[in-house]
C-alpha cells in the first residue's frame, strides 16, 4: 500500500504524518538560514558572466552596424550625431531584452556587458542611450551600491543552498 493510502486509511499513521509535518515546520522555525537578500542594503555581485547593461567602447567601434541588424527587439540603432562623420550605435532600454546578440556579433568587441541591472530612469527619453560621452560609454555602477549597499557574493552551499557572503 502506498504511503498516501496508508495516511488515508490508518488514522494513527495519519497522526504520525501530522506530527512529522509539524516537527519539520518547528525545525525550520528555529533553524538559522534565510534565503532573503535584503536588497538595497546588500547588493548581489553578479559577476563578470552576467548579461547586464551594455557599454560601448566608441574608440573600438568600426561602425559596421551589425549590432543594430542583429537586435531582435530593435533596441539598438545606428545614429549619426551632429559633428561626426560616422554612425555609431545607440541603445533604447525601453526595448532591450538583454539577449546579448549585439555583444556577441560585434567583430571588434566594442560592446560589452556590465554586471549591473538595477537602473531606473526618470523619464522615457532617459532610457535612450546615444553614443555620447557619459551616456552609452558609461561605466555602470549599481545605484544601491553607490548609496552604501554592501556587495555580497553568491556561494553554493550544501546546507543552505545559496549563501550570500559580504565581500
Amino acid at each position: 500500500m502506498s504511503i498516501a493510502d496508508r495516511i488515508r486509511r490508518n488514522p494513527l499513521y495519519s497522526l504520525k504524518m501530522h506530527a512529522a509535518a509539524i516537527a519539520t515546520g518547528l525545525r525550520y522555525l528555529f533553524a538559522k538560514p534565510r534565503m532573503t537578500v535584503r536588497y538595497p542594503e546588500y547588493v548581489i555581485d553578479l559577476g563578470r558572466n552576467y548579461r547586464g547593461m551594455i557599454r560601448l567602447h566608441k574608440d573600438k567601434c568600426i561602425s559596421c552596424s551589425l549590432c543594430a541588424q542583429v537586435c531582435p527587439a530593435s533596441a539598438m540603432k545606428m545614429y549619426k550625431l551632429p559633428g561626426e562623420k560616422k554612425m555609431y550605435p545607440g541603445i533604447n532600454y525601453q526595448r532591450c531584452i538583454f539577449c546579448g546578440f549585439c555583444v556577441d556579433i560585434c567583430p571588434v568587441n566594442a560592446l560589452e556587458h556590465t554586471p549591473v541591472h538595477d537602473i531606473a530612469e526618470e523619464d522615457m527619453e532617459g532610457m535612450i542611450y546615444l553614443p555620447l560621452p557619459g551616456r552609452f560609454d558609461r561605466e555602470w555602477k549599481s545605484p544601491a551600491e553607490e548609496e552604501g549597499g554592501r556587495k555580497v557574493k553568491v556561494e553554493f552551499d550544501e546546507e543552505e543552498g545559496l549563501k550570500h557572503e559580504p565581500e
Partner: peptide
C-alpha cells in the same frame, strides 16, 4: 514572522 521564519524569509521588517 513565524510563517516567514519557516519559509526562510524575514517577514515584516
Amino acid at each position: 514572522k513565524m510563517a516567514a521564519k519557516v519559509q526562510l524569509r524575514y517577514g515584516p521588517l
